[in-house]
Structures are given as structure tokens and as C-alpha cells.
Design a protein around this nucleic acid. Sequence first.
DNA 1: CAGTGAGCGAGCTTCCGCTTGACTT
Length: 774
Amino acid sequence: MAKNLVIVESPAKAKTIERFLGKDFTVKSSFGHVRDLSKKQLGVDVDKGFKPNYIISEDKKKVIAELKKLAKDAEMVWLATDEDREGEAISWHLFETLKLEKDRTKRIVFHEITKKAIDDAINNYRSIDLNLVDAQQARRVLDRLVGFELSPVLWRKVKPALSAGRVQSVAVRLIVEREDEVKNFKVTSYYRVTADFKIENNGKVSELKAELPSRFKTKEEAVEFLNTCIGAEFSVNAIEKKPAVKKPAPPFTTSTLQQEASRKLGYSVSKTMLVAQQLYESGKITYMRTDSVNLSDLALGMAKKEITDNFGEEYHQSRKYSTTTKGAQEAHEAIRPSYLNQHEISGTSDQKRMYSLIWKRTIASQMSNARMERTTVNIGISKTSKKFVAKGEVLIFDGFLKVYLESTDEADQQAKSGVLPPLKEGQKLPLVKMDATERFTQPPVRYNEASLVKKMEELGIGRPSTYAPTISTIQKREYVLKEDRPGTIRDFNLITLKDKEISHTVKNEKTGQVKGKLIPTDIGNIVNQFLIKHFVNIMDYNFTAKVEKEFDEIALGQKAWNKMIEAFYKPFHKRVETTIEKSEKFSGEKLLGQEPENGKNIFVKIGRFGPMVQMGDTESEEKPRFAGLKKGQTLENITLQDALDLFKFPRSVGNYEDEEMTVSIGRFGPYVKHKSKFYSLAKTDDPLTVDDARAIIIIEEKRKKDREKVIKKFDENQEVQVLKGRWGPYISIGKKNIKIPKGTEPEKLSLEDCLKIAEEADKKPTKARRAKKK
DNA sequence: CAGTGAGCGAGCTTCCGCTTGACTT
């Protein structure tokens, strides 16, 4: 039995550390937090100093049992969880649940996993910092109080099963407000003038492109300018050369990795985290949930060697980066390859691509600046004081650009200017042509997953471990949707001056394309309005920053955590109560107009099951009729006619096999119902016009598919079937579906085999079932 | 996950942070 037990948070880390420590040490992991507030109740006694009721998480019971046993037998327990608020709390929870003894427990921390760092940590042990633990408890309790008191208000006033929280509600707000900006943006057009000149140098002909720095507001002004330029003489007024440098970006944090993987590899933030986790677990990169841009001395040394060996000494420049991020806790290093001499790895193509990205970014961060020379040429016009400007850039030394350049979010970047041809001051420039192109002002760009993370990080909302889960939560609650939109064609004017003649053409371009952007739903809009109306302080972009400041004071021992919570909770709770009592249901109800025949009012609003239309008043004797909105329809864009169409369902479309067929719109889109069976319409079908002939085709097609679906049937037991599904063959027994074990040929299964497989499946634990809920 | 398809209120929803779970022999 080892004399020493070391407990860290991650099992991968445990493995590495164990190698450094030798056989007197056993290293185990806690797998993150081991206790939390009870899941079902508030878990905080608001009347007794906000005493938290901690419960060992179900999936941690085994871990705790094992650690308890090992701790009992060890001479010394070393709590080596991360050096931040959460890590300190994990150590404390371990101390409490494992019932450790003070004089046989030491708290240590290290930021990098090297022999030296670990030895140093062992020599610099301390005790658990209870102030820091209190700061974490305050954070935990605050989040619980906000989440568990606010969400029920939404259930009562807006719609059941909604949620609100310090982080997610503000994330939704960002998206809602950006959408409003896009909606309210007034596109205006202007004219940009460019000119092409011909340059002759010793018989060599080249082109010089220049632009007028000022823009024209109207077509008339642009034409007037071009008119002025007819027959004018153009000449070089001045040439200015200026040196410039470009610096590499700092090494990756979780947030910047998510952004770059999104831009360069097209990954969602959850995919980025999944692949990074694989790389971490196989020891190829350092920890992937970090807000630090710091590289260890070891890494700096490796980077220096790699750069000098591969590119030469002049390419190396040692750099220390420091974080500018609000609320960063910096318990880890930046995300970097574990071994920088490994330029490539084996693995899946996703892993290879991400590794290569991380390697390049890390190496580039320790390389020299790129140096260039920027040239600006002013070109005078004989008939006006306006001037054209030509810009060129020559790379003098590539530096870090040799390996890596960070991408940007800006959609339409100016074309990179290249080398200018040799020019002399006073030189005459013959005009080839001049274009005045109509351009349009751009609305703000909607967030995608990664740019939302960037914004959240700027505001200090959320942590590296929660960016991805938060983004999936707000989509799961249907507050926002990730959307693609094809865009529309827009005409623009092009006026050209060539050979002293002015010509007008109309061209077109695609605009308004959207790919993977986050767009608020009706529910998202309504919930956001509601929360801002009643709980503006929590929706404040600075709320987190404010409470973080108080958590810091608690960590420094300047404030008692439950006093802080009390000061927040009293007014907050009162607000919750008055909102429940006084405020009306918040449905976003809007009167669209009247039904032309019966004159009843038509409303749109959020109902128990989402956005819907209503015919007739709620207070009237006669019950109103309801219908859900179709995909793509929103409270804002729906018209009276759309709404009236929705009441046309269910529509009878004739008889088939002596039974009526009806077309209706359900939760999963339009369908035909026949003999109490459902048949989905194709995307191309219009549910308002589908007739009997088409409905019969749809029914028959589905029947054919169902027949092909059956691999095996058993006459002796009709309930049991072997079927072909979307995910391969499976056994269906009544309402239950069972996966076929690997290596079994579905065609050869007998009834007995099927029943046996089903029985086996039944015995297995029901863990998978928890994930079933939508 | 394996096909879902209503009703407009009787009973469950929910938070943010840490971390990766495993069913044989």
C-alpha cells in the first residue's frame, strides 16, 4: 500500500503525475466535483444562513468509496485539485466527504505537469483556503437561487419547462439584441470609385489599381465625378513608404481555440471540445479547458528549439503573454501540444487537423514579428482636387507568418494589396478605366456559436468548461436556433468610364446569406422581454462582473459569504414574489385582425405548447379555436392570411379504401391521416392544396417502405419483428426496440434468439434511459 | 434515437461548474 495518496481532478492528469512521483505515491482522480446541492429541491436553507445541503452525486459514489478506502490506508493525503475557486472547493468537499484528518492532509497546487513543478508543489504544501471555498459556495448558492427561483416564474407566466439563469439568460439577451439591431438596420447605398492605370516601364506593361478615399452618396454625384475625369490627366503626386509590423496571436485558450476551429475548420464548439478532449486523453495536448495564455518554461524551451532548428534563429522571439480576460482564473496552461517536437500526430483526420492548428498557433506565438513595408501613392487629377490612392504592401520578413495567421470574423475583407510597380513622383498615369460601384452598408453580423463564446468571455460570463454546454442549453430550450438562409439577389449599379465614354450597367450579387448563425425564436424573444421587464439587474451585462467582485472580497476574507447572498436574495426574492402575484401572463399576444366570415378576432401568442394562433376571445362563451404555427412562421412575420390558413386544418381530402383522409399539421410538420395512421407529407407538398390523388401516393409510398423495412416476421408471435431502421437492423417487440448485438446476422435470427436478446437487454442497467428526454 | 402527430393547464419542468462515465469473459 502506497504511503501517499494524491487526488487530482482529471484521470488523465493522474496518470501522468503518477509517472513522476514514484511508487510511494498513488495518484487518483475525483472526476471533478464530488458533491453538489440536491438536484430536486432548492438545496439551500434560506432561513438558516443559506446553509447548503450537499449531496454526493450518484455517479460519484463509487469514486468516493474507493478514495475513502485509499485515504484510510495512506499516511498522507495530498489534495492536488486545480488552483482556482472551484478546485479549492473540490478539495474541501473531498476533505469533508472522505472524513480526512487535518494533520494527515495537505493541499498542494501546480500549474504545469513537470517533475520540478510537482516536486516544488510537494515542498510548498498548505492547508485548504476556506475563504476561497466560501467564495465558491457563494457562487454556487447564488446560481442556484437565481436559477431555481426564476425558472418557476417563467413556468407560470410564460410556458412550462423553461429555464433562466445568470449565464444562459444573458447569452440569449445578446442574441436577441443583435437580431434587433439587424432588423432595425437601414441599408443605405453609396458609390465607391476605383481606377485602373497603365504603367509602362522599359517596355514592360503592368497595372496599377487605385481607389478614391471618399465615397459618393448618390449616383448623380458619382456620375458627375466621372464626367469631370473625362479627358483629365492623372499623375503621381507623392509616394510614401512606411515600415509596419505584425505580431502573432497568443497561444490558445478554450475560447480562442473554439473561435479558430470554427473559422478555419468549421467545427461547432461542442465538436471542438470533443476532439480536444480526445487529444488531451491521449496525452497529445495540455488541458483543453483553460482561460490562460501562459506557456510553461518547459514549453518555451521546446518552442525555441523547434523554431531555431526548423526555421533559423532569426525566427525565434520569446514572448510571455498575459491574460486580459475578465475573471480569468488561470489554473492551467494555455492549450498547447505536450511535445512541440511532434509536428504531426497519428489519429482521426479531425484530431490531426486540430493538433496541427494547435501546434502552429503555439509555435507562431514564439516567433518573430512579420515585417513589411507599406507604400501609399497619391494620384492627382488635373481637373479636380480629389486624389486617388494606391496602396501596396511588401513583406520584408515573414516571421511567424511562415507557419500561422489568425483568421478574422469579418465577412468581406478588402483584397490584400500586393506589390506596387516601380513609380516616380510626377509620373503620368494613363487611365485604362474608372468604375463607380454601388455598395451597401452592412448590418451587424449575427453571432455564431464561437463568436458568442468570444462575447461571453469578454463580458466574463461563463467559464471554459461551460461555454459549450451553455450554447447547447439555449438551443435545447428553443430560445435560439442555429440557422442557414440562402440569401437573396440584389441589383447594384455600375458606372464605368472608359475611352472617354460613360456607360451604365446593372449587376447583381447575393446578399443576406446566413450560415450557422444564432437567431432568436419567439420563445427566446418573449422570455427575454419578460426577464428584462421584471429582473433587469440579473439581465444586466455587468451582473456577473459585479458579483465576481464580491466573490473576490469573500476570497480575501473581507466579507462573509452568506451576508453577501443575503443582501442579494432579500430584494430578489421579493421581486420574484411580486412578479408571481401581480404580473399578467406574458404571452406576447398580438391581434392580427378578424376572420372575414364570422368576424372573430385572430390572435397570435405563445401558448403552453409554443407559438400558436387563436380564433375568438378567451373570455367569450364559446371556446376559442387554436392552431400551432408552422415552421418558419414567427409571431412577428405571420400575416392574417397565414393565420387563417392554419385554421383550415384538419382538411378532408377525400376517401381511400372507404375511409376518410385528412391533412393536418402536427408537431413534426404536415401529414396525411388515414385509418388512424400518419403519413408525413414531402417537403415539396403544400398542405393547403394536396388532393386525394397525391395523398394516396403518399400513403402507398410509405406502405411500400414499411414492407421493405421488415427483415423477418414470426407467425407464431406477431409482436416480434426484425426491422431495418435508420441506425441499422433492430428487434421490435410490441413497443420496445432492441439493438442487435454486434456480429449477429439479422436474417438468421430465430424467434428464440430475439426473445433471448430482448431478455438480456432488459437485465442491463437503465442508464441509457436517462438521456431519452427531449 | 429506432417514429413521433395533442391540447390550451393536475402536476413534471429549472441553475452553473468541475469532470468523464462503460455490460460480459
